[in-house]
């Protein structure tokens, strides 16, 4: 049986977040999601090169921000994503939804562009991310 690519990644993110972020506060959940995004960025850069991943993130962020204006404060700088201006105190629920979507979109787009070859590695990387020491890196 084959399922749409997007479902696989959204399911994976939901499963991971349900398990790892369950008993966290909203602020900690935001931090956990940011940590996961950066971890995936780092792992993807290892294989795809940083310049490629930055370009991919630019595209994904552009589309995610249209859907979740709350993430407009996330800035893609020349070498990394900057979440420092993300207002962690307001509209937590929307921020969590937006970051979850961003994370799943990163997995989906990279999966799609690499004929799903990196799916397993990236999903494994996601599973490694936990709330312990969940401050932004």
């Amino acid at each position: 049986m084959s399922v749409p690519d997007s479902d696989i990644h959204y399911e994976e993110v939901e499963k991971w977040f349900e398990k790892t972020g369950k008993n966290l506060s909203h602020t900690e959940q935001v931090q956990l999601l940011v940590k996961a995004i950066l971890a995936i960025e780092q792992r993807a850069s290892l294989t795809l090169s940083h310049i490629t991943v930055v370009v991919l993130l630019d595209r994904i962020l552009h589309q995610v921000q249209q859907k979740f204006p709350v993430l407009e404060e996330v800035i893609l700088q020349k070498h990394n994503l900057d979440f420092s201006k993300l207002d962690k105190q307001q509209n937590h629920q929307e921020t969590i939804f937006g970051l979850t979507f961003f994370l799943a979109e990163i997995l989906r787009v990279i999966g799609r562009l690499t004929a799903n070859i990196l799916n397993k590695s990236l999903h494994n990387e996601l599973k490694k991310v936990s709330s312990n020491d969940s401050g932004e890196s």
């Binding site: 310049i51 490629t52 370009v55 630019d58 595209r59 787009v109 799609r112 562009l113």
Partner: peptide, 11 residues
Amino acid sequence: YEVAVNLMAWE
């Protein structure tokens, strides 16, 4: 390279 990578990123 930059053009190619961007076009790839935007599918």
